[in-house]
Design a protein around this nucleic acid. Sequence first.
DNA 1: ATCCTCCCCTAC
DNA 2: TAAGGTAGGGGAGGAT
Length: 837
Amino acid sequence: MEARREEGGGGEDLPAPRPLSFFLGPREEEEAEGMAGPSGRAAVMAHRDEGRDWQIEEHDGSFRKYMEAKEAKLRVQFAKKRAAVAGAGEGGIFRGVVIHVNGYTTPSHSELKDLMAEHGGSFENYFSSARVTHVICANLTDAKLKQHQKEKNPVPVVHPNWVVESIRAGRLLPFAKYVLDRIRKEPGQSVLPVAPRPAAGGGTPKKRSRAEGGDLLNNVDSFFKNSRLHFIGSWKAKIEDVMAAAASLDPPKPDPPGAAPRRVVHVDIDCFFASVAVRENPSLEGKPVAVCHSESTKGTAEISSCSYEARKFGVRAGMRISDARDLCPSLVQAPYYFEKYQEISVVLYRTLLRSSARVQPVSIDEAYLDITGLGDPREICEDIRARFLGETGCTVSCGCSHNMLLAKIATSRAKPNGVFAISSDESEAFMADLAVREIPGVGWKSSRRLEEMGVATCGDLWRLSSKTALQKSFGAKQGELIWDYSRGIDSREVKSETKRHSVGAEINWGIRFEHREDAVRTLGKLAEEVERRLRRAGIRGRCITLKLKLRKPNAPPPPKFLGHGWCDNLSRSVTLASAADDAGLIAREAVALLLRLDADPREIRGLGIQITKLDEGQPAAADASEGRARSGGQPGILDTFMKAGRRAEAAGPSSSGGGGRGESVRLSDIDVNEQKYILSMIQVRQREQSKRKHFFEGFVGRERGAARWRGDAEGDPGPREPPREPSPEPGSALAAALGQARFSHEVAAVLAGAEAKDVVEWVLRSVESDLESIWRLLRAVRSLRGGGPEATAMGAEGLEEIEGLISKSVENVYKGTLPRDVCRGVGVECDDSHDKV
DNA sequence: ATCCTCCCCTAC
DNA sequence: TAAGGTAGGGGAGGAT
């Protein structure tokens, strides 16, 4: 339990230095689009790194404002120069250069970063002799000088003018002239070679072994068990239980809303995880403590929380441990205590509920209270703080005011371990100087956009904009919110209970797939996770969304160990006819959505399943194991198809009914309802025949070809040869034929000879049991359409028809309703010429 | 106008 | 090594 981690200890073999050491936030990647030439890419991303929250927060308000003003000026000043030299040299003059800026410089820290980005260089926020090629510094302090002298292979320390004048000259000037005087005196310094490294993106191709992600593939559970973000994210769902349990405390009720001006308190535990670590290890008291997974002092583990002592060194949540240690060598790394967090959180909420019945949970360590009419806010706050400290040994800070917004802002002034109140009179004056970034709801993007509009503080906002102008650039709601919040106006009420609108599970770390089956397997795990959460909450949902992170085409290796790096985020959803909570069904839908996205499995970096359009479930027969499958409770597509099928039957013996009759049918004659009907029959049969709990268990490890398609053989790794005999089931003859076809022209021949109806049936069946085959077929057809001698077997029209048919069938099956545009989404529009079958 | 899907932003 | 999740709000743009 007392798994204390000593520093040092475990720093044995370090992974090879990563060419890109900066961190890319998960959602901050897209803006780099089109900003620079190919070789400037990596540097552009370094630039994006600038936006990390903790880096902004590094400075206190006044310094930041000063810096920002300075930067704004410089930005204009340098814009022209930049334009003048843009395109100088292939890929920028600083190609291979990685700078780190030390101390105050002109151009500023941030401007240098921009310049590097513009001209093909890279930028490091923290010094690392492994990565940095040049330290940029205007004057060297004694301490820095000493440190520099200790280095075995000192990195040149160069005046910022080197950068500026190189740009002006349009080429990389020798830096010797710009080496700082005090250093130049050092023997040997001036002869250091420039030795530019390979551009960041084109570094050594790290070999992608299965081990990298393979471990995780089979271990989704352990990922969730260890993920701090999963922990804080899923805690919200549990808080409801805590609240319900605490309702018996019969807490005092505040005056009802509207009756009186509100008295709102916002409560937040001070650096929660770090506090708990200190509480668990009293010897850490007063030391700079950071909570992270790694014991190593050099890794890429992320700090999730750190003590105020550590913050004095500039350490922040979100930093990587190696960077933090550069700032604070004495930093103590503490592990997570997830169970303790839960216990303490329960104590917090019980404490709060003794003061007011109206408590709105925000997170595991943070909540709002409405205490209108319940007494003096300060007394209540101190009461809460004292009780909580007594019970847990952790301090909380409280903010009070007449609305939630101001209460929260007050808390930020109260920290650490204090109370701060903002009265109605002083709220305006208080807001005037507040940085817009401090407004809840104004994040990094919004604050940047405001900055571009010349707005840094709420006061600026009052003066510079009309509300409608704001709404024009931020949208009606967000614009209004910013407008109101900047004036301290907030009409939200403290609400105890909220209704959930979605349930999901996702993983965006450690995902490295080799085959499509790997992705399918992981989706299966996620589906089980989602099922668990739905059941626990007693709800079901009709809309299933697949979320996918896909490595960007030219993404460099991710700086973070097993991280997702630079990705495109994609999603596709399907709405079912009735609400589902069954893992098998969810997984099947998710796999179909994956098919729609048509992603190369090796490029996948993240996967998620989300359920929306929630209904209250009927918890009655929802007891996991069996029951549900037979007793008509089967949700989802099946009943829809059954209904549609019956309707089609009742409508008369048009072209449906029958079975495998001989006459040929035009593809366009086949009604979507008929397709659904066919599917429903197949599904029923399969359900009877096979006890497979989940679709994938049969799906994974398939590859055996057509034998599996009939759904009869369980394990049967048997003869690779597909069965020759026509099976009684429709479509299986085609399946067998396709199973034998190994080349595109054979596929084409089979398709050309097949009846449309057989194709439909085969596709529908395969959707159920063998998506991989559909995918392969689609590929085959597409590559045939691309031309080539084989295409003649069917003719362009025929191929087009087949492709449309496949697309339609898949789409129809996975739309619970009749689609508006059946072809959309299944990749018909895709023009991939890669990947021949 | 209103809905839906896909996407982005934000917070903890 | 490390564990970059979860949920809500809302906007753009197309379909109805």
